[in-house]
Design a binder for these strands. Structure first.
Lengths: 184, 184
DNA sequence: AATCAAATAGACTGGTCGGTCTATATTTTA
DNA sequence: TAAAATATAGACCGACCAGTCTATTTGATT
């Protein structure tokens, strides 16, 4: 019943390389070398490079929300959780060298793949919905209505992360957090 | 003194392909074929693919600000110009199939190139400075101080464009514009 | 101890990559 | 009109690409 250690090693290595270097510049040979597995093992578990990409996106998405929910869980109020969204992403950006959002990155690399597009959209939709729910649950100053506030938070956060990838720092995401703090 | 038509054709074709498909998936052969020029002509004008990339970034940056300034020029007030920043970018996104910011895109594709990084940073810095100047010139409700307002506008706009690339629409950039409208 | 699935090494395919080179033709300039 | 610069076609290079295949070895289950 336990998953193959080899399969995990393949996906872990591929995920790291796809995110750190980019999907197209990462060759099958490099994955095989760095995962230290046999060529046939890779093609046994993932019939094509595209399958590997989709598995990377799916697992990243699942782990992303699982980690986020664990990060938010101990916090008592929706307001704190909303601000922690910024902390969560800023922390992850810092510790991954400011390479930006996984899903934004792959979008920039793939122009026409519908399966990729659908996954990216689903990821962002789910994150947006999470923000909307938190805003609804949060007490806030109603200078903005719930929907507008949620959109503002979402856009400020995504903008901050996107700029962080271009500047290789978190100054804009930090600014975004402060702006939201004053908005809540 | 006039620039070679061939050189222009090369850069035009490369630029289109780099933006539409991505840098790494665009091969020299495709550029040669679609620009309908000889292989040696390309390497005569651009000694390497990297030179072509840097020329693409430089020319895109120059044309971008030139177009923007022309777009803003007829508008009478700084407030209108600030809102027109959204119109300008939304319009360009719509007519280019929502592929996102050129500079964000190339950042996602290149992980370690210092020359690319420097150009991306310079482009965003200049745009940020332009917004700061417009905010300073604009009459506004001072619900936020100048610097915070400028950052908010910048982040909302960049966030809206980034999400537009992932959704292939302008709904978030449109929302961002409305939010800023109520902020000014 | 026999079996069978999973993993291994590595040769091999057809194709593309970025880049070089030779040789000829066209255009610009002097 | 001669010389010089620019453009052309296309062969060629070593390297790498994604993916296939054969043959052998390992390790768990029966």
């Amino acid at each position: 019943m336990k998953e193959s250690a080899v399969k995990d090693r393949i996906l872990n290595t591929a995920s790291r390389l796809f995110y750190d270097q980019g999907y197209h510049v990462t060759g099958i040979n490099q994955i095989i070398d760095e995962a230290d597995i046999a060529r046939a093992s890779l093609y046994n578990h993932y019939p094509s490079k595209t399958d590997l990409l989709l598995a990377y996106l799916d697992r990243t998405n699942e782990a992303w929300f699982r980690d986020l929910e664990r990060y938010l869980h101990p916090l008592p109020t929706a307001r704190e959780k909303l601000l922690a969204l910024f902390d969560f992403r800023i922390h992850r950006q810092r510790s991954s060298g400011y390479r930006g959002c996984h899903f934004s990155k792959i979008t920039a690399e793939t122009s026409d793949d519908e399966q990729v597009f659908q996954r990216v959209k689903a990821h962002k939709e789910r994150f947006r919905a999470l923000i909307c729910q938190l805003v609804k649950d949060a007490w806030h100053r109603h200078v903005l209505d719930d929907d507008t506030l949620a959109t503002t938070i979402f856009l400020l956060l995504e903008g901050g992360i996107a700029l962080g990838a271009m500047y290789r720092n978190s100054q804009d995401a930090d600014r975004a957090r402060k702006i939201v703090e004053n908005l809540l």
